[in-house]
Simulated assay, not measured.
Amino acid sequence: MSNNLLKNLKVLYVEDEEEVMEQMSFFLKKRTGRLITAKNGKNGLEEFKLNRPDLIISDLKMPVMDGIAMAREIRKISDVPIIITTAFSEKDIILKAVDVGIEKYLVKPLDARELVTAMESIAVKIFRNRGELLEVRNKVFSKEEKLMIEDNIKNAIAKFIKEKTGKGPKNVKAFLHGLTLEIEILEAFTKLEKALLEKEKNISIVRYNREVFYKDYEEAMRDSIKAFFPWEIRLESVEIDVVDDKNRLYFSIC
């Protein structure tokens, strides 16, 4: 799972013990996009309303307002995921708060790997619900990583077509969604193809030759992108629009 997911999270951390706050703030700042801190539940509630974080990590027992009381107030206005850190001896309090909808309880002293795993799991849910996540064969990519992969595919395919036909397309777009890779190629017809298309009787010939071109070079196209897209892909269909000079390739991700 990508650590970059956490870099896109805005996290509110609520803790009353200064030493714990200092240590955890240092730990969380290195891993998250933005960290907001609060020293008790009342302060945490105020910071939540002001900053609307993606995730809250809060101690259970605190002065002024404890973590559960804060969570109850937040639940009146938001379903933001909440992780509560607690001592093992506080389990009776936890049992009385099952209705609050706490995402995860973690026992102190905190295990760093357990905390990061919990945060990553929550991040996946958050970005999946927002449609900002790419999931391919149990590997998760953030929105930024997805865009980078699509951009690399676009550039590789444009270069490949220019090398094979002698003419680079005006533009190439790549879209990853689910287990499908869609590539849209704009204005890729060569001078010869354009000349042939001036006569209506040649349209089917040009379309057929383009389809054969992509199918014959399926393996070569796959090789051109494997450096940054290591999964096997299979060309499922080709659409050739001779009117708008637009080619669409649909690959399934195996």
Rank of each mutant, 00 (worst) to 15 (best):
S2L: 08
N3G: 10
N3C: 07
L5T: 12
L6S: 06
K10S: 10
V11E: 04
V14A: 07
D16M: 11
E17Y: 03
E17H: 12
M21W: 02
E22A: 03
E22Q: 05
K30E: 13
R31A: 11
T32R: 15
G33Q: 11
I36C: 03
N40R: 04
K42E: 05
L45R: 12
E46L: 00
L50F: 00
N51R: 03
N51I: 02
D54I: 07
L55S: 07
D59V: 14
D59C: 15
V64G: 04
M65A: 10
M65Y: 03
D66S: 11
G67K: 11
G67C: 09
A69V: 05
A69K: 10
A69G: 06
I74D: 15
I84S: 09
A87D: 15
K91Y: 08
D92V: 01
I93N: 14
K96H: 00
A97S: 03
V98Q: 01
D99R: 00
V100N: 03
G101N: 07
K104T: 07
K104E: 02
Y105M: 06
V107C: 05
A112P: 15
R113K: 08
L115H: 08
T117F: 01
M119G: 06
E120W: 05
A123Y: 07
F127N: 11
F127L: 15
N129D: 15
R130P: 15
G131I: 14
R137G: 02
V140L: 09
S142M: 12
K143Y: 13
K143P: 09
E150S: 09
I153Y: 01
A156S: 15
K162H: 14
K162F: 12
T165V: 11
T165I: 08
K167P: 11
N171P: 03
N171I: 00
A174W: 01
F175C: 08
G178S: 05
T180V: 12
F189K: 02
K191Y: 12
K191V: 15
L196Q: 13
L197R: 08
L197S: 11
E198L: 14
K199E: 08
N209W: 13
V212S: 10
F213M: 06
Y214E: 06
K215G: 12
A220I: 08
K226M: 03
A227I: 07
F228D: 12
F229E: 02
W231V: 00
E232Y: 05
R234T: 11
I240M: 07
D244Q: 10
D245M: 12
D245W: 01
D245R: 01
R248K: 07
Y250C: 01
I253L: 00
I253R: 00
